Simulated assay, not measured.
Amino acid sequence: MWTPLPSSGLRLTGADRVDFVQGQMTNDLRGLRTPGVVACCFLNVRGQIEFFARAYRREADVYLHLDAGQAEGLAARLRRFVIFDQVEIQDVSGELRGVHVWGQDVPGWTPEGPDAQSFELAGATVLGGRVNRTGTPGVDLHFLTRHEDAVRVALGGGETSLTMLEEARVRAGIPDVVRDGLKGTLPQEVGLDVGGPLPVMSYRKGCYVGQEIMARLEARGNARYHLGRLEGQNLSDHAEVTREGKVVGQAGAHADGLSLARLRKELAPGDRVEVGGVPATVQAFAPAPADV
């Protein structure tokens, strides 16, 4: 099975491209093998999430894969920090397409190989990344728009909807910064810390925007919220979670009777809350760590 991904992307070239991005993102790009891929966030000075991306390090460039409509904003942010750096930032959203293949049965992909691979598919060179979007690692494929029809034919007739992918993601407990409305939160509050279902952090990589706040949180471990999951019918997306009239969190996207949520840590499994006035129950769940 495979699902088209709403995507946008940036391509960074120039001699300083790796060091430049390394100084902006939360994870360790410089420490990757080439090719390699790592999930990361770009934070503001308060340590709050502005953008989420998967960063691919390749021989000639760095490719940042984002959700649809995100590349323009990240490009503007990055350009503000270019001073003497030899780096060019190109928005390639219109030139590339992406799909997620459920599982790793992709012609040309080597399941036991590295997390990022370039290979031939349907006469085109594609970029693949091992990504866990459903609870089981699959492959994100990135390719030129002009090769889209040929790639779809090569993948076969197993196209599934984004709704199905979202349902699987929420069941697996894997957060999505854009779809769960998590911009403006701290990574440690929403499952993006080291050991979480979607780790985006390196505490040893050196300075970046928001790094001081991240170091304090690592040292003190005092985030008041964590990633939880709610059960209920017809819950609103991105609505406040309340208990006895007090705001105790923020719900993400609702899918198949479940919502991931940023919740106060004192809430316990079985506690009754409301999401936008609709009853819901805090679920006990242990999300499996995502690979990238």
Rank of each mutant, 00 (worst) to 15 (best):
L258P: 06
G195K: 00
M25T: 13
R171D: 13
A150K: 03
Y203C: 05
F285L: 13
V92L: 14
D19T: 09
T281Y: 14
E88P: 05
V248L: 04
E244M: 15
P197A: 09
P197Q: 07
T26R: 05
L182Y: 06
L198W: 13
G23E: 04
V273M: 04
P4K: 04
A172D: 03
G206P: 12
R272P: 15
Q233L: 15
L162F: 07
G252Q: 01
G173P: 03
H65M: 07
V153S: 14
H226C: 07
T34K: 09
P107T: 07
N132I: 02
P187L: 01
G276Q: 07
T34L: 09
T185D: 13
L155P: 01
Q117W: 08
P35R: 07
L29D: 02
L260M: 12
Y56D: 11
M25P: 02
R152M: 14
S8R: 04
A280K: 06
Q48Y: 09
F143C: 01
G221H: 01
A290Q: 09
G270A: 06
T185I: 10
G195P: 00
S259Q: 03
G158I: 01
V126E: 04
E72R: 08
Q22S: 14
N132K: 09
A261E: 01
H147L: 10
L96D: 10
P187W: 03
M201F: 11
F119A: 06
L227D: 01
D16W: 03
M1P: 00
L267G: 01
Q188T: 06
K246D: 09
L96G: 07
L144A: 09
V131W: 12
V37F: 06
G181R: 07
V178S: 05
G9M: 06
E120S: 14
A284V: 12
Y203T: 11
E148M: 06
G195N: 06
P6D: 14
A68S: 13
R79P: 04
V21P: 00
G270N: 00
R54S: 12
T13L: 15
L258I: 03
P107H: 11
T185M: 14
C40M: 12
G98R: 09
N27M: 06
M201V: 13
R46Q: 14
L78D: 07
R130G: 04
A15G: 14
E50S: 11
D91F: 09
D16P: 00
Y208I: 02
Q188Y: 02
A39Y: 14
T136Q: 12
Q211A: 00
G73N: 08
D180M: 02
R152Y: 09
G94V: 04
L121D: 11
V38L: 10
A116C: 13
D91Q: 08
H147E: 09
L260W: 03
